[in-house]
């Protein structure tokens, strides 16, 4: 298996999954692209139509598949293309943090934030901060066993 996440110096390169809503955040990421400023390559983007589609299971799945962090980006409050999806996402995120905390997974490994279609720079800032935060935390050693997507079990990673 190739691994882009190991830097030249062999230092820890976190793997992060970023769930981006199609209308604002994904467009914000494209906007950042348009400005051609370089940012860390650690975030693997998974596009969803709305942050409201982000099922907590997706987050658990990401951890179990090897992610050290998860970033959920949504339209700003009031701006969701589907009106309210981002409020649901925000509520679910809060709930999820409780579950993660109970299992010793730091809140910082799961960040929810807002990036609008015009905020290319904000996208870069949020993403870079996330990468640095997770880098400082080090690799995730807890793992979520969720081959059964309905299971929320969290165990040590093998």
């Amino acid at each position: 298996m190739s691994d882009n996440n190991n830097g030249a110096g062999g230092g820890f390169e976190p793997k992060i999954v970023g769930f981006l809503c199609n209308w604002c955040s994904y467009a914000g990421a494209d906007k950042a692209g348009g400005s051609q400023k370089s940012y860390p390559p650690n975030v693997n983007v998974v596009k969803v139509m709305c942050s409201g589609r982000v099922d907590p299971q997706f987050v658990l799945k990401a951890y179990s598949a090897g992610a050290d962090g998860v970033l959920i980006l949504a339209c700003h409050p009031g701006d969701c293309h589907y009106k309210e999806g981002n409020y649901r996402a925000m509520q679910r995120h809060r709930m999820l943090l409780r579950v993660l905390n109970q299992h010793g997974i730091e809140s910082e490994r799961c960040r929810f934030d807002y990036v609008s279609a015009g905020e290319g720079d904000r996208f870069i800032n949020v993403l870079t901060e996330m990468v640095e935060t997770v880098r400082a935390l080090g690799p995730l050693t807890k793992a979520i066993i969720s081959d059964n997507p309905n299971s929320n079990m969290i165990e040590e990673r093998s």
Binding site: V17, N44, V45, D55, F58, K61, A65
Partner: peptide, 13 residues
């Protein structure tokens, strides 16, 4: 769900 789970696995593989 299947498609998104698969994508998550894929990007992390």
């Amino acid at each position: 769900n299947e498609a998104i789970f698969a994508e998550i696995e894929g990007v992390l593989a």
